[in-house]
Amino acid sequence: MKASKMPKLLQMFLTFFKIGMFTLGGGYAMVPLIQREIVEKRGWVKETEFFELLALAQSSPGPVAVNSSVFVGYKVAGVTGSIVATLGTTLPSFFIILLIAAWLIGFRSNPHVEAFFRGIRPAVVAMIAAPLFSLSRAMGIGWKGLTLAAAVAMLVAFAGFSPAVLIGIVAICSLVFGIWQKRRQQGA
């Protein structure tokens, strides 16, 4: 039992290490690689299950990469499997960032490094702002939703509201509103 499980765990660690190593940009950029590795190459998850997995990974808090690893790991080898898969996904970026953090502290005062980052900072802001419109269209958000989005943006950006508290409030209100709406429909 144990002997047959060990190579599987090792195989899973290596597969998720590869996913963690080669998914630049994070989030949706890693979907094709995960699909190829775990659906096509290993067959750990079926094609249809994979899309359900993505929906679940997005509706749970935390990075999509971690959520997918936990799900696949659990399916293949239970709780141990999910821990091994998560370690595999996390370790590459952990060591790369550790190296950069250690390096950057020494080089921060270098004028070229500072100029490099001075050019990058406005670019980062643009990269966050630009996909907003296509994202709200893809999510099918109407005027009511856009009003809520604008309110959340203003409260967090200008009124210093805690995003965690707001997320909690929105979740509870949506649930109460949903139940109320359902009751009303059933009553009518």
Partner: peptide, 29 residues
């Protein structure tokens, strides 16, 4: 119930991304 919660969370997520862009638009950047 999860669907109900997500009907509200989706716009909130868009709002949070907008907030990220807005707070980074300052004299430091």
């Amino acid at each position: 119930y999860m669907d109900m919660i997500f009907a509200g969370l989706k716009p909130a997520i868009v709002g949070l991304i907008a907030a990220a862009a807005l707070t980074l638009m300052n004299s430091h950047n």
